[in-house]
Simulated assay, not measured.
Amino acid sequence: MLAGGGERAVSFGTVSRATGLAAATLAGRFGTRDGMMLAALGHFWDGLDAATDAAATETKAPAFLKALGEAAVPQIVALSLTLPEMRPRAEAWRRSVEEALALRLGKTEPALMMFALWQGQRLWQAAGGRGFKLKEATRRLGTSG
């Protein structure tokens, strides 16, 4: 719901219909809609951190990003950047991915560019934009990775 419709798509009613749990049960568990949303975002970040750790076995930058797969939902990353409670997790994840890319590419600046290209590509693909091949981006950035 967060990825498809943002914060406005999330209410006790919509989550109740999607999960089959009573709205009162959700309210009792999370207290507020914001509490429920923050719990969902925390779960997202736990999963993304685990996916990032698992991707660490990949030695090439494009393969590392590809291994992150669908876990790195750009709409949820972007939403997290707007929330003071989630922004530190998003920023820490970005730094960890950039550092992992820099190790694979041998240079910091291309790693920063590749991260931005990758997240931008994923965001615009959701809106129907055309993508590019990460291997091609690596070559154009002048890295071996």
Rank of each mutant, 00 (worst) to 15 (best):
M1Y: 02
L2T: 00
A3Q: 03
G4T: 00
V10E: 07
V10N: 00
V10Y: 03
S11M: 11
T14V: 03
V15T: 02
S16Q: 04
R17H: 11
R17A: 06
A18P: 06
T19L: 07
G20W: 12
A24F: 01
L26I: 03
A27S: 09
R29E: 05
F30N: 02
G31V: 07
T32V: 10
R33V: 04
G35Y: 06
M36S: 00
M37K: 00
A39S: 09
A40I: 01
H43K: 07
H43E: 08
F44A: 02
F44S: 01
L48K: 04
L48E: 05
A50V: 11
A50D: 06
A50T: 11
A54W: 09
E58K: 14
T59Y: 07
A61D: 13
P62Y: 12
A67N: 00
E70G: 06
V73A: 09
P74A: 02
Q75H: 04
S80R: 04
T82E: 15
L83P: 07
E85D: 10
P88R: 10
R89W: 08
R89K: 09
R89S: 03
W93N: 00
R94Q: 15
R95Y: 11
S96Q: 12
S96W: 13
E98T: 11
E99R: 07
A100H: 14
A102R: 08
R104E: 05
G106F: 15
K107F: 07
M113A: 14
M113I: 06
M114N: 04
A116W: 02
R122H: 09
R122W: 01
R122T: 03
L123D: 05
Q125K: 14
A126M: 11
G129W: 09
R130Q: 11
G131C: 14
L134Y: 09
K135W: 14
A137R: 15
T138G: 14
R139K: 14
